[in-house]
Protein backbone atom coordinates (compact mmCIF):
# COMPACT_ATOMS: atom_id res chain seq x y z
CA UNK A 1 0.00 0.00 0.00
CA UNK A 2 2.87 2.34 0.69
CA UNK A 3 3.69 1.97 -3.00
CA UNK A 4 0.80 4.22 -3.91
CA UNK A 5 2.29 7.01 -1.88
CA UNK A 6 5.66 6.46 -3.41
CA UNK A 7 4.19 6.28 -6.89
CA UNK A 8 2.59 9.68 -6.41
CA UNK A 9 5.89 10.94 -5.01
CA UNK A 10 7.75 9.65 -8.05
CA UNK A 11 5.22 11.33 -10.29
CA UNK A 12 5.60 14.58 -8.37
CA UNK A 13 9.37 14.68 -8.56
CA UNK A 14 9.34 13.72 -12.24
CA UNK A 15 6.95 16.53 -13.06
CA UNK A 16 9.00 18.83 -10.87
CA UNK A 17 12.18 17.95 -12.74
CA UNK A 18 10.61 18.42 -16.14
CA UNK A 19 9.15 21.77 -15.24
CA UNK A 20 12.30 23.07 -13.63
CA UNK A 21 14.26 22.06 -16.72
CA UNK A 22 11.78 23.96 -18.87
CA UNK A 23 12.00 26.92 -16.52
CA UNK A 24 15.74 26.95 -16.99
CA UNK A 25 15.45 26.85 -20.76
CA UNK A 26 12.77 29.52 -21.02
CA UNK A 27 13.90 33.01 -21.99
CA UNK A 28 10.69 34.80 -21.10
CA UNK A 29 11.06 35.24 -17.35
CA UNK A 30 7.33 35.44 -16.72
CA UNK A 31 6.85 32.10 -18.41
CA UNK A 32 9.81 30.69 -16.52
CA UNK A 33 8.24 31.85 -13.29
CA UNK A 34 4.91 30.29 -14.25
CA UNK A 35 6.65 27.01 -15.00
CA UNK A 36 8.51 27.12 -11.74
CA UNK A 37 5.29 27.78 -9.88
CA UNK A 38 3.88 24.64 -11.50
CA UNK A 39 6.89 22.89 -10.03
CA UNK A 40 6.13 24.47 -6.64
CA UNK A 41 2.55 23.27 -6.78
CA UNK A 42 3.68 19.75 -7.50
CA UNK A 43 6.15 19.92 -4.67
CA UNK A 44 3.41 21.03 -2.33
CA UNK A 45 1.59 17.85 -3.26
CA UNK A 46 4.82 15.99 -2.61
CA UNK A 47 5.18 17.40 0.88
CA UNK A 48 1.57 16.50 1.47
CA UNK A 49 2.18 12.91 0.40
CA UNK A 50 5.22 12.73 2.63
CA UNK A 51 3.04 13.55 5.66
CA UNK A 52 4.44 16.97 6.43
CA UNK A 53 1.44 19.27 6.94
CA UNK A 54 3.53 21.96 8.64
CA UNK A 55 5.80 22.22 5.66
CA UNK A 56 2.84 22.26 3.29
CA UNK A 57 1.38 25.28 5.05
CA UNK A 58 4.66 27.17 5.15
CA UNK A 59 5.78 26.11 1.69
CA UNK A 60 2.52 26.98 -0.01
CA UNK A 61 2.41 30.43 1.49
CA UNK A 62 6.02 31.01 0.56
CA UNK A 63 6.54 29.29 -2.76
CA UNK A 64 3.14 29.74 -4.34
CA UNK A 65 2.25 33.01 -2.65
CA UNK A 66 4.91 35.39 -1.49
CA UNK A 67 7.83 34.22 -3.60
CA UNK A 68 5.91 34.34 -6.86
CA UNK A 69 4.53 37.76 -6.06
CA UNK A 70 7.99 38.99 -5.13
CA UNK A 71 9.57 37.76 -8.34
CA UNK A 72 6.75 39.17 -10.46
CA UNK A 73 7.41 42.45 -8.71
CA UNK A 74 11.09 42.12 -9.53
CA UNK A 75 10.32 41.28 -13.16
CA UNK A 76 7.94 44.18 -13.49
CA UNK A 77 10.56 46.53 -12.12
CA UNK A 78 13.40 45.12 -14.24
CA UNK A 79 13.16 43.47 -17.61
CA UNK A 80 10.97 40.65 -18.74
CA UNK A 81 13.13 38.95 -21.33
CA UNK A 82 16.40 37.29 -20.62
CA UNK A 83 19.11 38.16 -23.09
CA UNK A 84 20.35 35.00 -24.78
CA UNK A 85 23.88 33.72 -24.92
Amino acid sequence: MIELHLLILAMVVSFGFVFSYLAMKEHDLLKALALSSVQSTFFALGFYILAAPDIVLAYLAIAVGAYTALVILAISKTERFEVGE
Partner: peptide
Protein backbone atom coordinates in the same frame (compact mmCIF):
# COMPACT_ATOMS: atom_id res chain seq x y z
CA UNK B 1 -0.30 21.82 11.94
CA UNK B 2 0.76 25.40 11.64
CA UNK B 3 2.55 27.93 13.73
CA UNK B 4 3.66 31.49 13.85
CA UNK B 5 5.63 31.55 10.67
CA UNK B 6 3.01 29.76 8.61
CA UNK B 7 0.31 32.08 9.85
CA UNK B 8 2.47 35.13 9.36
CA UNK B 9 3.31 34.30 5.78
CA UNK B 10 -0.36 33.60 5.10
CA UNK B 11 -1.13 37.05 6.44
CA UNK B 12 1.61 38.47 4.23
CA UNK B 13 -0.16 36.99 1.24
CA UNK B 14 -3.30 38.83 2.34
CA UNK B 15 -1.44 42.13 2.30
CA UNK B 16 0.04 41.30 -1.10
Amino acid sequence: PGGGFQGGSAMAVASL
